[in-house]
Design a protein around this nucleic acid. Structure first.
Length: 473
RNA sequence: GGCGCUAUCGUCUAACGGUUAGGACAGGGCCCUCUCAAGGCUCAAAUAGGGGUUCGAUUCCCCUUAGCGCUACCA
């Protein structure tokens, strides 16, 4: 039975790296009919914010991938205290009474890494108990085995065997002097308690894994299988950060840019994973069917974005692919919501709406294109794009439009064939190329210089509106 | 500094030790065409460097270089 967890800490919004970790956990669990657990790792009271919790849920809600169980570490503190006590009782941890942040002077040897505070390991149990009872503050540290030649190793599902000498691991903290659990302890105690079978997380945790194995062993808990994901980095090669890279790393930026959730998930799935064939556009089901940990890459992946454009071009392309291939009923509902969010009322005629959405979608890339570039289909107040204006400014074009308006008004027949016949006939009479009128009428009807085939467009705009708009040039 | 991980076109990536090193995005060109997309065709673009092992290395090993991660009473 597969059980995985996604464990964000609420210290910022949901960013693309976290989202990908969640998505990979989800695909793996769904592929193996397992359980997805969402756990808020909120042990750092100082840095956690309610706004952050909200923004993480906002992001997850948009992704629309469900989870089966939910926990908050702040509500499980007793579990961590018990775990800490157990480790202390087994003699695998010790109280360190050294004041916090006393820096370099505590290095065990010159030039080397900090491993433990001098003398702290040697305090006798009796003295330790006495000082603790007297209320002296301490941090509880794991007593990493030293001088034993022990090498800790694990078989990562992505990276294969990774090893590290126990002698190179510092005596990491389990409990703060406030008694609150540190990340390592809380995370492992939870993973053990929740019977997590696979820990799928960012590669920035590989070095922590050795510590975690030590904790699982101390807790007499089975060590889960690990799969570390290559990191997502910025074009400048740096780790993605809110402070440096701004909103480009936030999931909601893509949502607000009019992305389809399927396209976004598709995009981040392809960052560090591939189906190993040449498929790019894939549905959630297709990815679920072929997703394996073994197909995850080892090297970091760059998310492409710039100051001017916070969206990766490939993500945009994938979005346009999904936009044109998804069922039109589903798309029109999304378009309806988008229109409403832009102050446009959704049309009552559902059939007309779907046909129109279907007509224009192949040249749009995001949902935002519907209320913006496609405004003229859904409202009567729209701007004429400068390029469209140029089409109308072609000598004679406006007069042709007005004449076409008169002729269309003179006959009740209004089909793409009848309109086309009328247009071609008029142009022939005047000895101008049909393109002149076609382009000008597209500009008059939609305010855009570009768009669908002109005659389909007449039908989409409708007889009355077409006559009015042509007359008004 | 120490420890760990990684290295194929600009980017995302494919290639049982044997391929003209493939696909996609972005870029150039052509076709189609009432415009723009889409679609089709096409051009340019990569195995970090050096040693091995092998009949033969993108692929296995070592070194160098570069990048990233960890090295907190953050997660």
């Amino acid at each position: 039975m597969v059980r995985v967890r996604f464990a964000p800490s609420p210290t910022g919004y949901l960013h693309i790296g976290s989202a990908r970790t969640f998505v990979f956990n989800w695909f793996f669990a769904r592929r193996n009919e397992g359980t997805v657990i969402l756990r808020l790792d909120d042990t750092d009271v100082e840095r956690n914010t309610e706004a952050s919790v909200q923004s993480i849920f906002d992001g997850l809600e948009w992704l629309g991938l469900n989870w089966d169980e939910f926990y908050k570490q702040s509500e499980r503190t007793q579990l961590y205290k018990d775990a800490a006590q157990k480790i202390l009782d087994k003699g695998l941890a010790y109280r360190d009474f050294t004041p916090a942040h006393t820096g370099e002077s505590n290095r065990s040897h010159e030039g080397g890494p900090w491993l433990f505070n001098p003398g702290a390991r040697e305090v006798s149990n009796e003295e330790s108990d006495r000082r603790a009872a007297a209320g002296e503050p301490f941090v509880l540290r794991f007593k990493v085995p030293r001088g034993t030649g022990r090498v800790i190793s694990f078989n990562d599902a992505v990276y294969g065997t990774i090893e590290k000498a126990a002698d190179d691991i510092e005596d990491f903290a389990l409990l703060r002097s406030t008694g609150v659990s540190m990340y390592h302890l809380a995370s492992c105690a939870d993973d053990a308690d929740l019977n997590i079978t696979h820990i799928i997380r960012g590669q920035d945790h590989v070095s922590n894994t050795f510590k975690h194995i030590l904790i699982f062993e101390a807790l007499d808990a089975p060590v889960p299988r690990f799969a570390h994901l290559p990191l997502l980095i910025a074009p400048d090669g740096a780790k993605l950060s809110k402070r440096i890279h701004g909103p480009a790393v936030s999931v909601t930026t893509y949502r607000d840019a009019g992305f389809l959730r399927e396209a976004y998930i598709n995009f981040i799935s392809l960052l560090g994973w591939s189906p190993k064939d040449d498929r790019e556009q894939m549905s959630l089901d297709e990815i679920t069917q072929v997703f394996t940990l073994e197909n995850i890459n080892k090297s970091n992946a760059t998310v492409n974005f710039s100051e001017e454009d916070p969206i990766d071009p490939k993500a945009l392309w994938l979005n346009s692919q999904h936009l044109r291939s998804m069922p039109v009923e589903i798309l029109s509902n999304l378009v309806r919501k988008t229109l409403e969010a832009h102050g446009l009322s959704a049309p009552d005629d559902e059939e007309w709406f779907r046909t129109t959405v279907d007509l224009v979608r192949s040249r749009y890339t995001t949902l935002l294109d519907f209320p913006i570039r496609g405004r003229a289909y859904f409202a009567d107040d729209f701007e004429i794009h400068p390029d469209a204006l140029a089409r109308l400014d072609v000598p004679g074009a406006r007069e042709l439009c007005r004449e076409l308006s008169v002729r269309l008004a003179a006959t009740p027949e209004f089909t793409d064939d009848s309109v086309e016949a009328e247009v071609r006939k008029l142009c022939e009479e005047r000895g101008v190329k049909a393109g002149v009128l076609i382009n000008a009428s597209r500009a008059a009807l939609t305010g855009q210089a570009v768009g669908p085939s002109a005659f389909a467009l007449f039908i989409a705009i409708g007889r009355e509106r077409a006559i009015q708009r042509l007359a008004a040039v």
